[in-house]
């Protein structure tokens, strides 16, 4: 078995399994902690608040964004860009189709893929350089934040390096980093990609039952 076959075969299956089970375990673990039932008479629906809180926090309130507008634009660029790269990049669709899903969907054209990559890279770099140059973020950040940013960056960079598709080893390095990223994800802050809906929903529900129109 070649290195490439190993990293996109057995190792990928292992990493993906750890990713799925680990993330599920952690989500269930958080929910299982449970909370006391709120018995104060509600004014409006908590469930509606859960959904509303989730939707409302997708979009920032302009009044807080003045000093950090660049950060917010970067955040959007990175997250939307990464999402598009993962799910609408031709190579990724092919990989998912062949290895896991068995079905495919239309991909972005190559020029769009490259453009989106640029945006995603720019966004990620902006997010990280603010982390090192803003006293607030310097104070509150920990190792996990930096490792998460760097690992994601390296995954993306190795993918970009493999774009010519001329060398198996470059593809293998990309896959290896993807696997490491998948293994790291459920144990780290990268989990925010899944926990955000719990957090937004919890406060949304609290606000909702008080009848607060967020």
């Amino acid at each position: 078995m070649s290195f490439l076959e190993f990293v996109q075969g057995p190792m990928f299956i292992f990493a993906a399994t750890v990713f799925v089970l680990g993330a599920l375990w952690r989500l269930v673990g958080i929910i299982k902690i449970g909370r006391k039932k709120d018995i104060s008479p509600p004014k409006a629906s908590a469930a509606a608040g859960f959904i509303k809180g989730n939707l409302r926090h997708f979009w920032p309130r302009g009044i807080f964004a003045k000093r950090t507008m660049v950060h917010i634009v970067g955040g959007y660029g990175f997250h939307l860009g990464l999402f598009a790269l993962i799910f609408f990049g031709a190579y990724h669709i092919d990989f998912l189709n062949e290895r896991i899903l068995g079905f495919s969907w239309p991909a972005m054209p190559r020029w769009a893929f490259l453009m989106v990559s640029g945006i995603a890279f720019a966004g990620l770099i902006i997010l990280w350089v603010r982390r090192i140059s803003d006293p607030v973020m310097r104070l509150i950040s920990d190792k996990d934040d930096h490792i998460g940013s760097w690992l994601t960056f390296l995954v993306m960079l190795s993918g970009c390096f493999a774009l010519e598709q001329a060398h198996d080893i470059l593809r293998a390095i990309h896959m290896l980093l993807v696997n490491i990223w998948l293994l790291y994800f459920p144990f780290s802050r990268l989990m925010h990609g899944f926990t955000f809906f719990l957090s937004r929903g919890s406060s949304g529900a609290t606000y909702g039952r008080k009848g607060i129109d967020l």
Binding site: I30, I140, H192, T195, L198
Partner: peptide, 13 residues
Amino acid sequence: DSEAASFFEACVK
């Protein structure tokens, strides 16, 4: 509780 936990888990600093 699970609410506070979800906050700690979701914060990206």
